[in-house]
Design a protein around this nucleic acid. Structure first.
Lengths: 211, 211
DNA sequence: TCAGCGATTGAACGGCCAGTCAAGCCGAGG
DNA sequence: CCTCGGCTTGACTGGCCGTTCAATCGCTGA
């Protein structure tokens, strides 16, 4: 009902359902997500959900992977278009800081990430997906680092993979606090901290405009 | 049966149950934890659990807070005894890197933390507890930083709170990957990375022995 | 010895929800 | 116009657990 497209096409039910599931999980949390919620969100009957997916469990795992995949694709497509490595990194940080671009509410992709983590601890399938997703995330940063080192934008010549790990981990750790609405770790502070640490680790000027 | 003390004393049932709950949650995960599991672990009947706690939900939240509290107390007590700030930090890192001290299995305190995060996203009570716990964690690091700055062990004179945030976030982010058994982020690598970044941020020599 | 009372038990209840299924819907192709 | 087959429905079921409760236990103090 809410998302339903023009009924006729019903393009890809499979994907529609994944979208609906991701939306429901984001707002209610994995634990409070019922099949009927997803059905309602997708504008179909509960029975249909199980017609397309073998079980609720499988659906939830797929939905989580799918959503994070989407985020990655969106981000990487956008970043590839930016010529300067420094600007690429800046944009990556903009996109990673929860609430910074205000395209979503407080609960954005990061909320899903946490659900992925919990699930991955016990579900080997999810664990595998998570690892792939995470390696891609680090690789994306490592690529930017390599680019900047090659172009001379970044002064550091340290191992790009190690630098990527450090930056990625810092972002992860900070994002958690921000998403939790921690009074001491605001959106703005996280952004500032990320930029400062990155410029320190990679050896570039945080502010490009001035001078 | 498993944990039950000498039956007679039955010191503090309340606490015994919290302990049992934390243990069950650690090994099965919040989602798979039943009241009967906790009862079994504590060696009592399911009915008794609800005699001491108003509801399963309340019990779970309390157990999570309790467990993290225990970890903090244990850690801080141990660290306070160490004279050198550099050694304090080293010890803190030792204790924070999952699996480094091999006192626990792969699933240790960090697994509980992730459960706390998921819960805190929707449960205001849990959110409040989490914030307190987290601030304390950062404050503990900030104290070490201040100590090292005062004694001259650390060369950096930057804001201790900001340094603590950076170190804490890095540890959080890395610990997640380690606990997930990520092939690229091993226990040893996390430890090395933490020590290197810390020594860089705080300006001290990572290896004290040599020279 | 016994009454009284908190602690403890475990059987039973009731609600909830994943998953099933028999029955309709509807477009395509003949 | 009819038939076939995939899509869709929603009522139903079976099991699972949180929670309740009446009954028992066993200590303590008189």
């Amino acid at each position: 009902m809410s998302t339903a497209s023009s009924k006729q096409p019903a393009k890809d039910r499979h994907q529609e359902i994944l979208d609906a599931a991701a939306r429901v999980i984001t707002e209610r949390g994995l634990a409070e997500t019922r099949i009927s919620d997803i059905a309602e969100q997708a504008g179909v009957s509960p029975g249909l959900i199980l017609y397309y997916f073998d079980s609720k469990d499988r659906l939830l795992s797929e939905a989580l992977t799918y959503a994070n995949d989407q985020f990655y694709l969106r981000t990487s497509r956008e970043i590839r278009r930016i010529p300067s490595a420094r600007d690429q990194l800046r944009r990556l940080i903009d996109l990673s800081v929860p609430g910074y671009l205000a395209e979503f509410g407080r609960l954005d992709e990061w909320a899903l990430w946490i659900e992925v983590w919990v699930r991955a601890l016990r579900d080997p399938e999810m664990a595998k997906d998570r690892e792939v997703l995470d390696q891609r995330w680090r690789a994306q940063i490592a690529d930017i680092v390599r680019g900047g080192q090659a172009s001379g934008e970044f002064g550091s010549s340290a191992d790009p993979e190690e630098l990527a790990l450090r930056i990625a981990s810092l972002i992860d750790g900070l994002a958690i606090q921000v998403i939790m609405d921690d009074a001491e770790v605001t959106t703005e502070r996280m952004h500032r901290t990320c930029m400062e640490v990155a410029s320190q680790l990679l050896a570039f000027e945080p502010e490009p405009a001035a001078r």
